[in-house]
Design a protein around this nucleic acid. Structure first.
Lengths: 130, 130
DNA sequence: AAGTATACTTACAAAAATGTGCCTAAAGCA
DNA sequence: TGCTTTAGGCACATTTTTGTAAGTATACTT
């Protein structure tokens, strides 16, 4: 499953440098980058192509402006999302997945498959018995 | 990507019943079941087979007893983890993935691939330049 | 009789995550 | 002049999550 047994749950404080982090279990590392309430939701919404800040807000009705900003900033820092500012007024900013972010496509799709298979049974049942 | 555009970020309060939930985007649903600091870590550790409570604790050194208990209880409620109590003294309890939980194997492996590819570069680089 | 082992529970405390409300800039348009 | 639009920033408040420390039960061993 993973090279580094027995350290799957280690803390990763700011003080720990990238090199040390990279020696930990990749699953733990991935989880640490994608944790939080909104990160995977935002990535999910960007899979099909770039969206503007406002478009993302409308696509994720329950996210607040603040959380969308924070989430995007963190995804940007981690090299998962690109921020492209058009120097116009009113402002126009587009967010897209980097190559690293695109690499999450199979994660997102298997996550979707799992959700569909295990928790959307009623909807499927209705559709199939019709 | 998903049947239900525009509702990817909806809240899922307790008051919302299973039927309503199942009509939401499967990715959002999956994320809601697997959120939290420890859930995926625990699932990851159970992928290779059942473990006892104490074994899980040792495998995830930074988790507290309390958080392990809480996490396992929630995974159990959601049908992802099985709890098997052996009626002996001292207690012996084994945790394993249900079929639903096993369905997360591809999620875990693509997550691992992504982590390995994007954040463990130094270790790979060292290994490859040697 | 006291200590060991295992899998917890509970009350309380601290920390982290998230939400709210209000404010800004700068150009275009009525 | 003042309203609209877009993408935020900021201070503060609240909620949610996580951690700490202590206690419980019971059979077996020393």
């Amino acid at each position: 499953m993973c090279d580094n047994l027995h350290i799957h749950g280690l803390k990763m404080p700011e003080s720990m440098d990238e090199e040390t982090r990279s020696q930990l279990c990749p699953v733990v590392y991935a989880v640490s980058k994608l944790g939080g309430k909104w990160k995977l939701i935002v990535v999910h919404n960007l899979i099909d192509g770039p969206l503007r800040f406002g478009e993302l807000r409308r696509a994720i009705p329950d996210i607040t402006q603040r959380m969308l900003t924070l989430t995007l900033r963190e995804l940007e820092e981690d090299g998962i999302v690109n921020r492209h500012v058009f120097e116009v007024v009113p402002p126009h900013v587009e967010y897209s997945l980097t190559e690293v972010g695109q690499g999450l496509e199979s994660v997102m799709s298997s996550l979707g498959d799992w959700g569909r298979a295990n928790f959307a049974q009623k909807r499927n049942a209705v559709a199939q018995t019709a």
